[in-house]
Design a protein around this nucleic acid. Structure first.
Length: 422
RNA sequence: GCGAGCGUAGCCAAGUGGUUAAGGCAGUGGAUUGUGGUUCCACCAUUCGUGGGUUCGAGUCCCAUCGCUCGCCCCA
């Protein structure tokens, strides 16, 4: 076993890829209907974009990035998430000047240097949306609704929406101080990670899993009590809109996103069947990021889904079966082989899927292979058919077989028959 | 980054120091040179992730290394 894909990376083979295709077409359709448009940004960016955007104190930036220098000594980083790049493109191309709200979505690989685990890789894939240019709570409700539509369309059932508000920058600053003031006397009782965060990133202490820390945090001041009237109003609006949409949620005051840029609404969808790695979609509002990166003041909100985890869930269920005929071309003898190749091409132009057997082995083997690949109809051209320009049409499921002139197959009569039997 | 377990063929595996490494699935060929899903037969690991060590002898013990899994951490 000399060759190995690098740690934390893996190949997605055709048998698994069909699940990815299903996921992508399902998501694409829902996003399209909600008027979101696809954007592609580079896989790597200047390192400073992520340092400024995500926050230098975050774990992602401080220890999980794939950073390298190119030949001209520029510091580049493989993107660890999608938002920073999309915002950079939004500013660079002046998308704000197109007026109105920009609804964007993206799908692609992201890179983080983490310990691999089930459903967690160093190269992983995210699907995400960003809505730029609206501070309206309806935008919050809309992106949450779109995420839910996608997750439900994929068949996820045990979904919980966790909701919180982290307030605006001023609210958070005040709260942060109150939290540090409260926690400082307990410093020695906190777990080491939390002690470390006390001055670097104290909000993250709220979702520590350490039991002693949790007990201390339980009595800590609550972020929700520090929200300004405006922040509180926004949060209440979002909740009321979700209720209008019939979307159930659970308020979780400890829900703190790992990236610095979030403001106001923070949310997560969790699927209970995934246990510890149950977060399947996470997002929130980031009203100052565009401005902080040098663009015009632009409120925004978005989310990202980790696709590996979704694929894990999808693979537990069978995919809807192919609803179109699949032809398998079986030939024998040089004349038949040539005719089979031509007929296959003609059938493909009619919109059929056709696989040509190239093995040159006995009929029995070829038909067996047709069966194996799940073909619906087997087309057989032997020596006598080649002379007559005919073809044996054999339905694999029933075994029924008829002899017809090759060109007749391309007509409309056969089309309806083939689709009916698929 | 920390703790634990694991690593035998494309896949699932038996094997717990003693001569030639079970079995199953898949694959290939044949029984059946013009027709599949059943059956039968044959073939399919000079080698046990990799490197080193202990031993008369190692897939089995030891060390290192790579990878995977689980938990922590982090996050999607």
């Amino acid at each position: 076993m000399g060759l190995q894909a690098p740690r934390g990376t893996r190949d997605i083979l055709p048998a698994e890829r069909v699940y990815w295709q299903y996921l992508e077409t399902t998501a694409r359709q829902i996003l399209d209907r909600a008027a979101y448009r696809e954007i592609c940004t580079p896989i790597f960016e200047y390192t400073s974009l992520f340092e400024r955007g995500i926050g230098e104190a975050t774990d992602i930036v401080s220890k999980e990035m794939y950073t390298f220098s190119d030949r001209a000594q520029r510091s580049l980083t493989l993107r660890p998430e999608g938002t920073a790049g999309v915002v950079r493109a939004y500013i660079e191309h002046g998308l704000h000047s197109q007026g109105g709200v920009q609804r964007l979505w993206y799908l692609g690989p992201m890179f983080r240097y983490e310990r691999p685990q089930a459903g967690r890789y160093r190269q992983f894939h995210q699907l995400g949306v960003e809505v730029l240019g609206s501070a309206d709570p309806r935008a919050d409700a809309e992106v949450i609704a779109v995420a839910l539509e996608i997750l439900q369309a994929l068949g996820l059932k045990e979904l919980t929406l966790m909701l919180n508000s982290v307030g605006d920058r001023e609210d958070r600053r005040a709260y942060r101080q109150a939290l540090v003031d409260y926690l400082t006397p307990y410093t020695a009782d906190l777990d080491p990670d939390s002690q470390d965060r006390l001055h670097r990133n104290p909000l993250r202490i709220l979702d520590s899993k350490d039991p002693r820390t949790q007990a201390i945090v339980k009595e800590a001041p609550r972020l929700l009590d520090y929200l300004s009237p405006q922040s509180r109003h926004h949060f209440e609006q979002v909740q009321s809109l979700l209720q209008d949409l019939g979307i159930r949620y659970q308020i979780n005051p400890a829900l703190v996103r790992g990236l610095d840029y979030y403001t106001h609404t923070a949310f997560e969808f969790q699927d209970l069947s995934l246990g510890n790695e149950g977060t399947v979609c996470g997002g929130g509002r980031y009203d100052h990021l565009v401005e902080e990166l040098g663009g015009p003041a632009t409120p925004a909100i978005g989310w990202a889904m980790g696709l590996e985890r979704l694929i894990l869930l999808l693979r537990e269920r069978p995919l809807p079966p192919r609803a179109e005929p699949y032809f398998y071309m079986v030939t024998r003898g040089e004349a038949a082989e040539r005719q089979g190749l031509i007929l296959a091409q003609q059938l493909r132009r009619q919109g059929y899927t056709v696989e040509v057997d190239l093995s040159g082995s006995a009929f029995a083997k070829q038909v067996k292979r047709a069966d194996r690949v799940g073909a619906t109809v087997c087309l057989v051209i032997g020596e006598s058919e080649a002379t007559e320009r005919t073809v044996q049409v054999k339905w694999l499921a029933s075994g029924e077989q008829v002899l017809v002139p090759q060109q007749e197959l391309l007509g409309e009569n056969w089309r309806s028959r083939f689709f009916a039997s698929a």
